[in-house]
Design a protein around this nucleic acid. Structure first.
Lengths: 202, 202
DNA sequence: CATGAAACTTGACGGCGTCAAGTTTTGATG
DNA sequence: CATCAAAACTTGACGCCGTCAAGTTTCATG
């Protein structure tokens, strides 16, 4: 018996990822209010002060979780707009469906990603992963940018609309529990985006 | 000397509104994280457990603050879209300006109004006051509802867009500190709404 | 004036984030 | 292999938090 499962008294071995995993589990089970450093530590089988050696306080843990969360978020967006037709309008619809679906499936992670303070974390955290999600949006938005128009404007229009709508949806403004996406008002609302300049034929 | 300033040992007299006021002050000074029952009690010059007799815990206090906050929010919207031209498009622009301005002026109150969980409180809380704000939106949106179209769709399109944009703006996505509203990208982004059906001439 | 309800206080509990100090383990250096 | 400094983790404490239980004061009603 060598040291297969390294679990000595004072060395967990893989504590940092274990804490992140525990935090995500807590989020999925009980939402943003259920996330605490001490509970993560307990789940990882470690003392309450151990996380301090790996994260800069609770904010640091959230930041680490946000990075992981952005990965999942990006995957949702990519999967959504890769599936189905390649028509620009259809891709845009799919992107929005993916955005909303992520919010429905992982409201706790959404809350961490987009921070206690609105979308602040989008700016502060999530370097590569945020960029990844944004690049997907940019890619989908590109055909709707008219010549000479600032693409940032179009991207912001899309982002603002689907983000605001997702929050409304999660809040139960369209019924609790929320209706299935395809029966819901999503398609009607994002139809507004189809009044963007017609997709350039590329 | 009758009992002019009623401040006996065990009867504050006007504790409930005093606590709400203290809570709002805390929000304005330090944002949502600065709000606590104990600090409100201290500011009102009362023991830490006193608020329990007037609110159902912290959630109850937030609910009461949200009602007050909705009043202010409604006022922002009304003032914004009453000032200036009466052209439907101009009124819509003004409404959005007012929405964003409220977020910039009172981010803490916005956080309470729209809850820890997205816009949940919009549904749960804020009876009359919420309705009031929504009716302003409805009024502004009305000219853009095409015959036979569901007005809820148009209202949701407007609401989603401006709400999502406000959160982006507050997050500093357009620079920190945020640029003045009129120089900023607000007008460009909500130009999307001008592609709604042309205002009906009434 | 008596009495019961309402308003408020005091004290305690457990959970939280965080800090300081101590113990164990690791891994590099000689 | 021995040494030793740094890294990993523990224990204990502090203050703040929301909440509950029990006691005291004030008010209003009869």
């Amino acid at each position: 018996m060598t040291q297969e499962n390294v679990k000595s008294r004072h060395h967990h071995g893989d504590l940092k990822p274990a804490l992140i995993k525990a935090g995500i589990d807590l989020l999925e089970e009980g939402g943003i209010k259920a996330l605490s450093l001490r509970k993560c530590a307990a789940r990882a089988g470690v003392s309450h002060a151990a996380p301090a050696h790996h994260f800069d306080g609770l904010a640091g843990l959230k930041q680490a979780i946000a990075e992981e969360g952005f990965r999942l978020f990006s995957q949702y967006l990519k999967d959504a707009c890769d599936s189905g037709h390649q028509d620009p309008r259809e891709r845009l619809r799919s992107l929005c469906r993916g955005y909303l679906q992520f919010g429905l499936d992982h409201p706790g992670i959404l809350a961490v990603i987009f921070g206690d303070q609105g979308l602040a974390s989008l700016v502060q955290f999530g370097g590569k992963e945020k960029a990844d999600a944004y690049l997907t949006l940019r890619d989908v938005a590109a055909p709707f940018v008219a010549p000479g128009q600032d693409r940032l404007v179009v991207e912001t229009q899309i982002w603002s609309l689907i983000h605001g709508f997702t929050l409304l949806y999660l809040a139960g403004e369209f019924g609790s529990p929320p209706p299935p996406i395809d029966e819901g008002p999503l398609m009607q609302v994002i139809a507004l985006l189809e009044r963007l300049d017609p997709p350039s034929c590329s």
